[in-house]
Design a protein around this nucleic acid. Structure first.
Lengths: 98, 98
DNA sequence: TTGATATATTCCCATATGGGAATATTATAG
DNA sequence: CTATAATATTCCCATATGGGAATATATCAA
């Protein structure tokens, strides 16, 4: 449950997400504590906005795997490794095993 | 708790992360169910590897906020908006209020 | 087989979050 | 001050995950 961009009043989120108001407020409460969203008051409205900076670390980390899906060659290589490993295994298939 | 790259035996993770083996196995169990990691057997070892593809969606989403931290001008603008909003508010400061 | 390794699973307990319903808060309109 | 709109918080209940300890599995070595 996230405010994509700009500021959003709780009510707007409630309507667009079709989730009960208390739930939305609770979600926002959590995100607020973790500093992923920020609030500003405007009349009796609370305007929430995403705190992009907080997401940067995640972005930086996940970014280190970009090569896995962005480069064609990488994908081919990955697929090859994948199959190679697949073969080495003695035909299991519980959760997934691949 | 994640295998950064290549394949990692549970034991290696246990040692490098300094987390009890049962915990590591449990973590991996969860990640396995969500398909974020994959396993392959090699002798009595279980080799885990990150399933990068599963992270792509997250990457794609979070990427839409890249502008917030990558462009100088964007940062300045963001800071300005930030302060602007700050002023409009009537001096609260519970959780954070900004 | 038997013992040792490498992992996984289970048990119990604690905490975080989600849902629904009810209630409290805050701010605006009159 | 009072009613109402906009949000937040609390209660109760359910489930997911984390920690520690104990135990079960699987695989290898002899």
């Amino acid at each position: 449950m996230l405010a994509r961009d700009g500021e959003h009043a709780v009510g707007d989120l409630v309507r667009s997400l079709r989730i009960p108001q208390p739930s939305v407020s609770k979600h926002l409460g959590v995100l607020r504590r973790v500093r992923v969203v920020s609030v500003s008051h405007r009349g009796q409205r609370r305007l929430y906005r995403l705190n992009a900076q907080e997401l940067k670390p995640v972005h930086d980390w996940i970014k280190t795997f970009e090569r896995f899906w962005s480069h064609h060659l990488s994908r081919i290589k990955a697929a090859a490794e994948y199959k190679a490993r697949e073969r080495e295994q003695q035909h299991h298939q519980p959760e997934q095993e691949n």
